[in-house]
Design a binder for these strands. Structure first.
Lengths: 337, 337
DNA sequence: TTGAAAGCGCTAACAC
DNA sequence: GTGTTAGCGCTTTCAA
């Protein structure tokens, strides 16, 4: 009886409905010219047969995939999740789907991922950061689709970008710290060289400190990214041991800053009275923990939204070059003077 | 000069290399019979021409997509991110790619998403939770591919599942609370009916309280999901006003529990001395905040890993039914007696 | 180890 | 508003 039958195709619907396959195809496109009754009959027949539209075939024939490929360092990070959310919302208007991959903060893995994603023939590709392996960069350059680098302001962009200078953002925070009177300032971040955004922030810290004529030896390397709460706590423990007279600490993200805060709480070190603390990224936790954390809002969601807008414009030929600079915002809260 | 040229295909490589397209195709498959020199020459030519393999065409012809479709409520949630991470790792062995969509805790949106994902012809589909719209359920039943429900133990599974009873898990926590002496216990969760896992946890709370002959009126509905830190804090404020003599609070997740904790800190209410606090999900924050949070580890990553294993077994025909029950683990920490 | 023929399911392009 | 033809780029199948 109930044999394994092949799934129905448009041809099957055409046979049942007494129209040509082409008409069935038209019935599934919202904008196409087709009489209301015909469409209705076709959609009904499709429902009855349990038909499922085959995007693969459609994509091959029309040479459009409705995919936008996206690489992020980690799926488990609220900043990148927000960016993907904003992007997704912006693309929903055109019914485009995101093909997401994560690199685990590894440029080799990014290269592998880019290659794999490009095989799916996306209409655009969005990458996080402006640094890539030579081959990864070449793959992007040759991709014949819009390439958008995000969360960075690349020295030499491959195509387009939507981002900001991580170094400049931290520089601004150091300037603020100095303005309100802090001098012995430390930086907690990942080991140099892997998380490029983290490294850029560290560079910004170093540059600004030097510009102010301040010491730059209070650097705690908390290991390979992702630098999260635990690493922040451990780094703070080292900092309090090695440089007990530190007045203020800038952490590579709110997550590590919160970890650092908990270490202070366990030791009875008062924030900001004994030591000031700041993060980066305006994560939810920074706005709610006690004390709330001074941070930099990098506008994660806006980065995604603007990226999505840009992609739609590029695909429609409305625009042809997008260098969108996002303005991060310093948010002074309870954890600093 | 440099005209817009069509991207090279296997036929182009075949022409350049002097072999048939079929041989080129073989060169890209690791297991196929082909001489080492021929393959070498072909891969070299491909590199020179900037060839990119076309998965779309491959998928159509071979009727295999190497996609696994996944729906999660929110991309910005560490528990689901961990599950996707575990799944992704398990599938990496077979080079399968995850096609991810998020439902925003909305079953209507889930239905829309399922339909869209199925059009891409995934080899399996993983959904979060065991409750769906009637049409969503029907789509899954007719999908002719393995369907795996996760993060739940469905009353009537569509196909397979990897999960646990959210109600039972919370029941166990209530039992523990009663055992150590708490009686006036409250529950902070989302509005009933939207986040099904949250509702199940609430049901578990109510059932266990009744079983112990305790009052069940200390229920704070914190709004529609996602219930995060801010909602937890607001709910705690209401709870402390409406039921100031509450001895212990169970929150629908660690995030809301942490929010609740901050509200206590701002009011000078000592945890666990004045009130005990527990969460759900073993998020990173619960293990590091002060005090650390009693919680239930739902083994998010293991859910993903086991799901991935199951999918591979099902696709290889090794297994034909998977009802995998995950055992959540109560973790008693500083926030409770 | 390699090649030839056919076709996966859909839609572009054109005709009526 | 609908139909016909051809073919997107690859791989299955069979043959050599």
């Amino acid at each position: 009886m109930s044999q394994i039958r092949k799934p129905p195709t448009m041809a099957d619907i055409a046979r049942v409905t007494g129209v040509s396959p082409m008409t069935v195809s038209r019935a599934f496109k919202t904008d196409s010219l087709i009489s209301a009754e015909t469409r209705q009959a076709i959609l009904q027949a499709a429902e009855d047969l349990g038909y499922v539209f085959d995007s693969t075939a459609s994509n091959l024939r029309s040479q459009r995939s409705d995919f936008v490929a996206v690489t992020i360092p980690s799926i488990n990070n609220a900043n990148f999740a927000d960016t993907v959310g904003g992007l997704s919302d912006a693309l929903a208007a055109r019914n485009m789907q995101i093909l997401l991959g994560y690199t685990n903060y590894d440029m080799q893995e990014e290269e592998r991922l880019i290659e794999q994603l490009l095989r799916r023939k996306p209409e655009a590709i969005v990458v996080t950061g402006g640094k890539h392996t030579p081959r990864g960069r070449k793959l992007l350059e040759n991709a014949r689709i819009p390439v958008i680098e995000t969360w960075d302001k690349p020295a030499s962009p491959i195509g387009h970008y939507v981002g900001f200078s991580n170094a400049d953002a931290v520089r601004g925070m150091v300037d603020h710290f100095v303005r309100v009177g802090y001098r012995r300032i430390a930086f907690i971040g990942g080991d140099a060289g892997r998380d490029t955004r983290g490294s850029d922030r560290r560079m910004g810290f170093l540059g600004a400190m030097k510009a102010h004529g301040l010491e730059t030896d209070r650097l705690i390397a908390a290991g390979p990214p992702p630098i999260s709460m635990r690493e922040g706590a451990n780094a703070m423990a080292r900092l309090l041991t090695e440089f007990p007279d530190t007045e203020a600490v800038i952490c590579v993200s709110d997550l590590s800053a919160f970890g650092a805060l908990t270490e202070c709480q366990r030791r009875g070190v008062a924030v900001p009275h004994d030591i000031a603390l700041a993060g980066f990224g305006d994560y939810e936790i920074g706005g709610i923990c006690v004390p709330t954390l001074t941070t930099i809002d990098a506008k994660a969601r806006e980065i995604g939204r603007r990226t999505g807008q840009l992609i739609l414009e590029l695909l429609e030929g409305v625009s042809d070059a997008g260098h969108v600079t996002i303005q991060p915002e310093l948010m002074v809260r309870e954890s600093t003077r």
